[in-house]
Amino acid sequence: MDDTLYGTRDKRGDWKPNKLLQYPPVFIWPAKPVAFLKWFFGYPGYLMPWNVVYAVVATLLWLCATPSMETMKTLAPGWIAYLLVRNAVLVFLFFGAFHLRLYMQKKQGTSFKYNSKWPSKDNSAFLFSNQTVDNVIWTFASAVPLWTAFEVLTLWAFANGIIPYVDFAEHPIYCAIIMLLIPAFRDLHFYLVHRLIHWPPLYHAVHKLHHNNVNPGPWSGLAMHPVEHLLYFSGVLIHWIVPSNPIHALFHLTHAALAPAPGHAGFDKIVIGEEAGIDTHAYDHYLHHKFFECNYADGVIPLDQWFGTFHDGTKEAEDRMNKRFMERAKKYAEKQARRSGTPS
């Protein structure tokens, strides 16, 4: 599969797609129902490929790899440890598959790779100066335990009737709607959390750890500070308020846990065969890692467009972003000058 048919490389060898980033036809007027349906049911689109994958995985986890509600009425070490190991194995297999194919076997070389360089192995910003080792440590030492903690407490609350429960068999339409809305809600929650942790004090204390990955790979997705993990996985608490089924909570957490792998893959497509590839939908977030202050959300709701932080990959978008930086720097200089009593 020839990546030059889909994008261009600059002098440094970095690749970018020809197709500009744009939001789906959801929050537009006049409405475009045909375009919306094509996006919703089409490929790539809202459901496919990734949201369907996460929904299927979550359903299988609930049916085949989750203790009974009766068991989960009591917070016991046995089933809690079981969920911790189950989640660790899931992350190892899912994230590991991306890393194995793209970064160890290098099945497609740098074809469709945004940054021509490979993860750093000699950078003091990372634990043991190794980006991949650092990312794996934060994933298993912090992300998986905190994800599991949210899951344990939520399932325990469902089992004990503490939070509102809805049965799929009794309310199939309502439950289906909740399933369909979860990715969109995650987008909103992610945006709000993301903007919060870009507040300078929190950025330097918490989020900078994740942004050390200027050239992200799959394992970078969950390489976060524990405080960021707490905020990131807290979206599942919506199911403590909105009547839901445990499958909804599992889908929510599975989506949050697995989506960062393709989202940080560093490749625009995973090449399958000579003429086929799976879109990762990673370019918008890659631009965020590259430029830091754009594309805080990467989903259905055009929040970045509404608040002026959307970067579609063009030179014009970069110029607008640089203009924001210059205006902010000017205001900061003026503020410092007023404090010191010197003219700006």
Rank of each mutant, 00 (worst) to 15 (best):
M1Q: 09
D2Q: 07
R9F: 07
R9I: 05
R9D: 05
L20Y: 06
Q22H: 14
P24S: 08
P24K: 10
V26M: 15
I28V: 14
A35P: 02
F41K: 08
M48L: 15
P49R: 11
N51S: 06
Y54C: 02
A58T: 08
A58K: 06
W62L: 12
S68M: 11
S68V: 12
S68H: 13
T71L: 08
T74H: 11
A76T: 14
P77G: 14
P77Y: 12
G78A: 15
I80N: 09
Y82I: 13
L83I: 04
V89W: 07
L90Q: 12
F92L: 15
F98C: 04
F98V: 01
L100Y: 09
L100Q: 05
M104A: 11
M104C: 11
K106A: 03
K113L: 00
Y114P: 01
Y114A: 00
Y114L: 00
Y114G: 00
N115K: 04
S116H: 02
W118E: 08
P119D: 00
P119M: 00
S120Q: 11
L127K: 07
T132Q: 08
N135G: 03
N135M: 07
V136N: 00
T139D: 04
A141W: 02
P145G: 03
L153Y: 11
N160G: 06
N160S: 05
P164I: 03
P164H: 05
F168T: 02
F168K: 02
F168W: 10
A169L: 12
I173N: 07
C175S: 14
A176D: 05
I178N: 09
L180P: 03
L181S: 14
I182V: 11
D187L: 08
H189Q: 12
Y191H: 02
V193Q: 15
H194C: 10
R195N: 13
P200C: 02
P200H: 08
Y203W: 15
Y203T: 09
H204Q: 11
G217V: 00
S220L: 03
G221I: 02
G221A: 05
H225P: 10
V227H: 03
E228S: 07
E228D: 13
Y232V: 09
Y232E: 12
F233G: 10
I241Y: 06
S244E: 03
F251T: 01
L253K: 10
A261W: 05
A261M: 10
P262Q: 04
G263A: 01
A265K: 00
F267Y: 01
F267D: 02
E274G: 08
Y283A: 07
D284Q: 14
L287P: 04
H288A: 06
K290V: 02
E293T: 15
A297F: 01
A297L: 03
D298V: 08
V300N: 02
V300M: 06
I301N: 04
D304A: 04
Q305C: 09
H311Y: 07
G313T: 00
E318A: 06
D319W: 01
A329C: 10
Q336M: 13
R339Y: 13
G341M: 12
G341F: 12
